[in-house]
Amino acid sequence: MSSITSLKYFETTGKITHLFIQFTQACFSRPFYLNRLLEQIVRLGIGSISISLVIGIMTGMVMTLQFGYGLEKFGGTLYVPAIVSMSLMRELAPIFTSLLIAGRVGSGISAEIGAMNVTQQIDALRALGTSPIRVLVVPRVLATMISLPLLAMLSGFSGILGGLFIAQTEFNIPPGFYLNKVFSSLSYGDVFGSMFKCAFFALIITLFACYKGFQTKEGTKGVGNTTIWVVVNASIVILISDFFLSKLLILLF
């Protein structure tokens, strides 16, 4: 039983790696579909702005509240801006945004490609002499790799502003002081490191979604199972790889 499971695990890893190689090859050879890429950036990226803002603002506010009251006991409210902004920009905004995108974009892509597969539209693309990798995978993966880092930063900065609001209203920390502390504690390394992590998470989400979409077989039920598989597995891999990527980034910067 367990040997079968681990065999399956290696098989899946191999197939996703193969898809990644095909994706890379398609990225560096003609034809390119710029209009399809832009279409996906609008759909997947711009369409996710509002939820990224909500995540960011709410996380920033609640973090400020928690740290504020926690540190108040020790007279440490002064450290709130630095702690909130660092944890937001380094971890919370990238991870929360990525998990949400795994849900929204990952399930969307896998359901779309899965449904196309069961209705033979993927076969039709191939039969018409085009590559589903170029037409479907490349625009979606690249669009998400471009959008997710930007969304996470948007989320992070809106969180800092949410924190600013709570810091002032609840703890009487003046906005000038708050922002000053934020900018002196954040480095470019924090920002670019997080964007790098998010680009990697975007790759995970979209490759998983495309891979599972192409594997979808048994009709409508298959499409449902596909989306579940993608959201669960992409989320787990994001959380695990986040630890190692963070370790790596701390060593580098």
Partner: peptide, 23 residues
């Protein structure tokens, strides 16, 4: 390989039993 097949598929085309239109 798929690249070469894609050239052949422009010369031999297949009309699907189900239509398989892009929805």
């Amino acid at each position: 390989d798929e690249n070469e097949l894609n050239k052949i598929r422009q010369r031999i085309s297949y009309s699907f039993q189900s239509g398989a239109l892009f929805d």
